[in-house]
Design a protein around this nucleic acid. Structure first.
Lengths: 162, 162
DNA sequence: ATACTATGTCAGCAGTATTGACTTAAATGT
DNA sequence: ACATTTAAGTCAATACTGCTGACATAGTAT
């Protein structure tokens, strides 16, 4: 057994284990987003619209700059998508109370309905995967996913770990 | 086991749990690909180039149609990216032995070097996450990820030996 | 010969994201 | 008060990804 001595392998992680993880992420993410992408395409929307709809639904009254920070994209990139969603009545903007420069974002009823449609299949998929894997596995999944993302984003989740 | 009476939730899955899973996938995938994306941008390549480089490295002698099946994209989409990689000397094509219509794909030395650069940070990231989470968690991660992807893709992983 | 398969190409369209430059309006600091 | 910074938006140019449709070439299979 020749273990390639590439970079330091602090655990007993073979190259195969690392490759498998990379592929698990690729295929899971690809399939996880595929159906929503298809739904969006019918409405002439893309994945970016979904993300905006999702996070506005998740954080009602979100400011544009906060949304930008979550998505990690430029305001110009967001602009096209957000303007479209506002123009077509999925998202409502209202002036901030304390800071009137802000345009706080909320889903309209139409937006809530779209969000539900888009994430319905994803929720079913997650629920099925969680159920089949069991509670211990879910806890492991959470740990690994938190470890994969950037450290400064972990705080967003009720992370018991560092 | 206690069976909660929540209608659409066969497990103990609250809406919050499902949302968290969606976000774990989003943030982990986003951060997982971010550095490689930056490296690619310097070479005027994109994520699609990375995927091609990755899977050709993973499966030397891969045929174009098999690569297409793995990536789930059209040949026209692949064509632009693949032609570029061949033209710039990252991937070599050779005629198939049994079927001379095939153009079997292999990484050149240059391609191997690029693949290593691109996945180096990803491997470190996975290794760190795995190490911190521990073996049980890793097993759970694998189970959940397999459950999230489409059933017909799971065969690619673990089921028969490894 | 005919049909099918593997691969490639041209053209056009849409979506996502970038950088750079500039604007408006409101908050804030000195 | 005046200057600076911040929140949001806009215009323009560029690039990567993916799609559909149409067509071409070569090799395989009947």
């Amino acid at each position: 057994m020749v273990e390639p001595k590439t970079t330091a392998n602090p655990l007993f992680l073979r190259d195969e284990d690392l490759r498998q993880a990379i592929e698990l992420l690729f295929f899971a993410y690809r399939d996880f987003t595929a159906r929503a992408d298809a739904l969006l395409a019918r409405r002439h929307f893309g994945r970016a619209h979904h993300r905006v709809i999702y996070f506005v639904g998740r954080h009602p009254g979100l400011s544009v700059s906060h949304l930008l920070a979550i998505l990690n994209i430029t305001k110009q990139s967001l602009s096209r998508v957000l303007s479209q969603l506002v123009r077509e009545g999925y998202i409502a903007q209202k002036q901030g109370d304390s800071d009137r420069r802000q345009r706080l974002l909320n889903l309209t009823e139409k937006g809530v309905a779209l969000e539900r449609d888009l994430s319905a299949e994803q929720r079913v998929r997650i629920a099925a995967a969680y159920k089949e894997a069991g509670g211990i596995a879910v806890e492991g999944f959470r740990k690994v996913m938190l470890g994969v993302m950037d450290a400064d984003v972990r705080g967003r989740f009720g992370a018991p770990n560092g």
